[in-house]
């Protein structure tokens, strides 16, 4: 619990320093929705070469984009994803493919990353590199910028849902609540939800909030505002009745 809080604080800090969440950024997740992912060849350490198509035609997957020398969001982002999944596994099965967008990364370095995260032997997780980074990025609408001073990429922490036909069904940028991950996983299994909320900072009074720890759909403060007037009316009814009828209320 304490650990995830630290990660949360860290990630909030990091996402705010790199790109403050605004309405405009929220629309980034709409880019290239229902476009097909570029069928980039993938190299996984110690495995024969494959491509995205070979993966999604077997099982839909969630794609995470990182680079191994990242001193910022990549590592806490993956740890958080791992913990979220381990804490409460999803009903429907899917794979998580972590692909590097740094041309300097090798398949071995990605394997090392997997080992450090304790995910090397987990069959759900695949760590790979590709030689078609630009085409892949373009098909995902992903746009990392190299910062030659910090020697780092300035980039979003991006999760992309890919369904069984290779279509991008949903994207999530940054650390997100469990329910939004649920929606992402549902979308790759072609479960339709007619709507979703755009990430924006003013969720204090929204009708529904999602608890990322329990993964439950929790009524938000907004719903309380819907129920409050009825409660107030009943309260007034009881108070008035008590004050004017000393003997009995009912």
């Amino acid at each position: 619990m304490y650990k995830s809080f630290v990660f949360f604080a860290l990630i909030v800090l990091l996402t705010h320093s790199s790109s403050a969440q605004s309405f405009s950024d929220a629309m980034k997740e709409e880019i290239n929705i229902y476009q097909k992912i570029y069928d980039a060849p993938l190299q996984v350490a110690g495995k024969p070469p494959a491509s995205f198509k070979e993966f999604y035609s077997q099982q839909p997957f969630v794609l995470a984009l990182v680079f191994t020398r990242c001193v910022g969001i990549c590592s806490p982002f993956l740890v958080n994803l791992k913990e979220t999944i381990q804490l409460q596994p999803f009903e429907k099965d899917f794979k998580i493919i972590v692909v590097s967008f740094d041309p300097w990364d090798t398949a071995d370095e990605m394997e090392l990353l997997a080992r450090n995260l304790g995910l090397k032997s987990d069959p759900k997780w695949i760590f790979a590199v590709t030689d078609s980074i630009d085409q892949m990025n373009r098909s995902l609408g992903f746009d990392p910028v190299w910062d030659s001073v910090r020697m780092q990429f300035d980039h979003d922490a991006l999760l992309v849902g890919i369904n069984g036909d290779g279509y991008i069904t949903k994207k999530l940028i940054g650390l997100r609540e469990r329910n939004e991950l649920n929606q992402l996983v549902a979308s790759i299994h072609n479960v339709f939800s007619p709507t979703y909320r755009l990430p924006n900072p003013n969720i204090l009074f929204s009708c529904f909030n999602y608890d990322p720890i329990s993964g439950k759909n929790k009524p938000g403060l907004g719903l309380a505002f819907l129920a409050l007037p009825a409660v107030m009316a009943v309260g007034v009814l009881l108070i008035v009745s008590m004050s004017v009828r000393k003997r009995k209320i009912l």
């Binding site: 009074f205 929204s206 009708c207 907004g222 007037p229 107030m232």
Partner: peptide
């Protein structure tokens, strides 16, 4: 429903007086 109106007006006033630092949820 008049209590609802009071709550609604309170939320409007909160946003109006906060000069942009408090924004309401359109669905609510």
């Amino acid at each position: 429903c008049l209590f609802v109106a009071v709550v609604l007006m309170a939320l409007y006033f909160a946003e109006f007086l906060s000069k942009g630092s408090f924004v309401n949820d359109a669905l609510l």
